[in-house]
Design a binder for these strands. Sequence first.
RNA 1: GGGCCUGUAGCUCAGUCGGUAGAGCAGGCGGCUCUUAACCGCAAGGUCCAGGGUUCGAAUCCCUGCAGGCCCGCCA
Length: 459
Amino acid sequence: MAPGTTADGDTRRVAGRVQVVREVGENAFLPIRDGTGQVQLHLRAPHMGEASFREALAVIDGGDIVGAEGVPERTRRGEPSLLVSSVSILAKALLPPPEKWHGLKDPEARLRQRYVDLFTSPETYQTFLARSVIVRELRRYLDDRGFYEVETPVLGRVASGAAARPFLTHYNYLDEDYKLRISLELPLKRLIVGGFDGVYEIGKVFRNEDLDSTHIPEFTEVELYWAYADYEDVARLIEGLFHHLAGVAGRFLPEETGRAILTDLTPPFGRIDFIEALERESGLTHVLDRTPDELRALAREAGARIGPETPPGTCLDKLFAHFVEAKLDQPTFVLDHPVATTPLAHRHRSKPGRVERFELYYHGTELVNAYSELNDPDDQEARFREQLREPVEEAYAYDSDFVEAMRYGMPPTGGLGFGIDRLVMALLGAASIKDVVLFPPTRARAAENSRPPNGPAPE
RNA sequence: GGGCCUGUAGCUCAGUCGGUAGAGCAGGCGGCUCUUAACCGCAAGGUCCAGGGUUCGAAUCCCUGCAGGCCCGCCA
């Protein structure tokens, strides 16, 4: 449509939030925006009548949600607009929106009032839209390959499947102290015993730990278990999945960035052996033959905080983190960890002292953890008991019912787990996990409570 | 947990040497015959994060606390 022209006939109805009101004599221009985009309303006194024109401008402010009816036109300056015949307020904004040019800058306010950040900052909105679409595509990819999505309990007597401090709660009806889950692993493996040959869950897990740019106590995990598969099958599944999701993320990124990520995540990913990589980068030798005391001394030298009782597995993890992790910029599977680091994985079929496990690293951070699952109940019980001997708070909790389930026979199984938050960070290039979590936790503001203004104080 | 930094109007920010609070935007009123952060004029708007201290006098200096950010250590 040429500038200064109006379409014939067809009336359109639109709605959205008023971004700003520009009043110029007998014309007024009000860009409005909704989830699908932005359009400019053109109010014109001679067109809609002087009285309605004045009335509309008297009541409409920036931030209001309005509905309007009119015909498409292109203004003399070329802006696609709706030449409005009638407009009404659908919802009045009683609080003013942030400054129209600078937006909401205060990082604290952007977290505490994410809803304001969302309608003010298109980048923020795009990030969370992208996250939603990535999760949708993740589901579709797994569903298309025959995996079934399930939901397992968040509350339980035992929080196991990982090494972390749980959140505690109380179950009134049962009058028992319960814990919030720290992992999805053990219930899902019970489903493998039960005959679900391919299951996954996408759900929140809760670890009562610190918050920083890559950790958040309540985060969303994906875990998947695949009967009659091993960790090599799982690695290929991850390669295909992540390549697909990189393509999805690219729709929300600048073209060049999107292409770069898609190229990075094109299979096959790199593969390195845990011990070989550690020994190569650190210059250490015979790492697997060291005594616990020697490992503690080495980890301490590498700058880790190591107590006299720190388990050898932890020391090996620290050494690896110190010498190797940051160097793994391109997607790389780190394979075959020492048994001591991994209580739930199957022993390696040919490498003694190792398990069939991989972690996927990208841009120096761990994205995925996967194994050929341990399915020998006696070995599982022994390794749980080994963990019980660890005098640290963050040990794998003993789950006797899980061992019993395994005694009924669990097929050889490949499994994987990853945090959606970190994957989204990696795909979208976010610097902080708070940038990809809608409502990250914040401390209570002074004198702030769940009490309404002037209402009664909470008990 | 350690270090550094930030907190002033609804929002974005100034505030000098310690002398008693400023701008722009938003909102109000008036003007403007197609604007793009529209523009012009007028008026209004403050628990200077909180508490304490120093001082004749504190947004400003000192102490304590609260909230947030960044870096480091730790859990994915």
